[in-house]
Amino acid sequence: MKRLFVLCALCGLSAAASAATWTIAPGSTLDFDTSFEQAPLHGKFEHFSGRITLDPKHPNACSFDVTINPGSAKTGNPTGDTQIRSTPFFDIAHYPQAIYRATQCRWNGKGPIEVLGTLTLRGVSKAVPLHAELHNDGKTATLDAQATVNRLDFGVGQGQWASASIISKTVTIKAHLLLMH
């Protein structure tokens, strides 16, 4: 049975922790929030995976390598789910993956983490910082992260959908990642 990694430094134990590389475990969530015609729109990506490395001894060095399947986006509306996969939005026929990569963090080894990374979506790569928090209760490790992006920076919502009066330009992305060592 796979075990979840216990990060000793965050538990207040005196043992020195070393770099830990985790995989994102089943049960993790990756959600997005925006608005459509001024009403809240919530969605989630059902398929994503990745590896995360954090080292409390060297807290500014980190590694995030996360792959997202935009075709797995669900909004709770079958018509919307079909539309979001189409050419004006994620264009999954040409861009079946989105990737988030980071190699630098601003962190003091505990508390909030600012992850400096790049999101590649629809063939466009842009800097997207994540604000994250690593949690450990002695039995499990989780990472909660949030970022805000302008969807138009990545070409998401073209043509009639480019208007912010229909769909907000701002999209908030929230992740709750269960980490497995």
Rank of each mutant, 00 (worst) to 15 (best):
H47T: 14
F48R: 04
F48L: 00
R51Y: 07
I52V: 15
I52C: 05
T53K: 09
L54F: 12
L54E: 03
D55M: 08
K57M: 11
K57H: 12
P59E: 03
N60Y: 05
N60L: 07
C62N: 04
C62I: 07
S63E: 13
S63C: 07
F64A: 14
V66I: 15
T67H: 02
P70H: 01
G71I: 01
S72T: 03
A73P: 00
N77D: 12
P78A: 11
T79N: 11
T79H: 03
T79Y: 04
Q83G: 00
I84P: 01
I84S: 00
T87G: 13
T87M: 15
T87I: 02
P88Y: 01
P88I: 00
H94K: 13
H94R: 11
Q97H: 12
Q97S: 14
Y100R: 03
R101L: 14
A102E: 04
C105T: 02
W107L: 09
W107Y: 08
N108F: 02
K110L: 14
G111I: 02
G111A: 04
E114D: 10
V115N: 13
L116K: 06
L116Q: 13
L116C: 10
L116F: 09
G117R: 01
L121W: 04
L121T: 03
S125C: 11
A127M: 07
V128A: 07
V128T: 09
P129V: 03
L130S: 10
A132L: 00
A132P: 05
E133Y: 10
E133G: 15
L134S: 06
L134V: 13
L134C: 05
L134E: 05
L134Q: 10
H135A: 10
H135Y: 07
